[in-house]
Design a protein around this nucleic acid. Sequence first.
DNA 1: AATAAAAGTAACCTGAAGTTAACTTTTATA
DNA 2: TATAAAAGTTAACTTCAGGTTACTTTTATT
Lengths: 194, 194
Amino acid sequence: MKTNKDEILNAALSVFSEKGYEGALLRDISAALKITKSALYKHYEGKEALWNSMIDYVEQYYSEHIGCVCDIPIPNSWNEFQMLSLKQIDFTLHDETVRRVRRLLMTEQFRSERMSDLATKHFITDIEALYTKIFVGMTEKGILKCSEPELLAFEYTAPITVMIHLCDREPDKETQIMNKIKAHIKRFSQEHKN
Amino acid sequence: MKTNKDEILNAALSVFSEKGYEGALLRDISAALKITKSALYKHYEGKEALWNSMIDYVEQYYSEHIGCVCDIPIPNSWNEFQMLSLKQIDFTLHDETVRRVRRLLMTEQFRSERMSDLATKHFITDIEALYTKIFVGMTEKGILKCSEPELLAFEYTAPITVMIHLCDREPDKETQIMNKIKAHIKRFSQEHKN
DNA sequence: AATAAAAGTAACCTGAAGTTAACTTTTATA
DNA sequence: TATAAAAGTTAACTTCAGGTTACTTTTATT
């Protein structure tokens, strides 16, 4: 039975995110695919090559599911803004692949330069850019008055990011964490609405 | 030459934080101490035991150098507040042991329950508790008016935390990062001063 | 200074993980 | 359908890290 390339990369992502690069065994990955570890060598030259291909895969998934939100609609009200934010948070928190990627970024950011770059992009740059764009748009629509949209985006998104990382560590506290996020969003909205 | 216990734990912290638990070799640790790996077994039963002792050491260091700031003086002005914050950030960013601990918390948080607990405590709970206390104190002194000091502490500290993590990844960008932190502190101060 | 405990060394053992080779089965296409 | 390429299997190999043992050196104490 021909093993699909995406299946392999998915299994690799699963195991690497669970155990880290050093802790992940080719045996674990092949077992998840119900093939022997030798069979993996028919597809990839070795562990390192598989790792690199997995990063390519991750980057592609990311750009298709998160990067593409650049053409997101600018909210027309603060209520729409809140809905939009919560929807994104919900996706980020529950999409299995995104969760695995985040875990990987956390644990491997210091051992792989590509991971380090991706971490900064994923955790900071892209989200801030997105919300900067949203805040500029909302300002143009007269919903928001702000002179420094970048700073605002930074201060809005960072607390949410911290809570998402917390939720990755302690998923059973999701309800409390979401309440904290909602309190932040509410407070932020009330402060800037007008 | 008798090897001191603190020397061993320091070397362990150095190597574990650099390579992670799986990637760290007893050989590396013993080499850093200029002894053979066999000699390590005179002090610790094995890798796992050394790891656990290192966490004890880390917890102790943390409570002595960061936990103890519970009896920090409440600032009497917004200028004092800014000075205090910047001083803490400077310490956190440059103390070698604290940096290593942070790296360890990042990379091992999903593989060790003690690390996970420490990460939440270190990155969130303790800092928020500290600033909640500061904001309550400042409110009592009439410098600040706030009804939800916990929420305020969360929103104040989270952006700083995110920037510290960024600085760990990309130390050469420290200047820009510090500017961003300062902009945040300034904006925060101006918004709440009164 | 004698001597026992603590600290260190070198050599070896063991198991495990990445990798390779030889061979078989499946898949696809001329 | 013949046949070659792709995918898979088993088993061996290589390397290397954690751990053990037997022995030596250092340190400290009476």
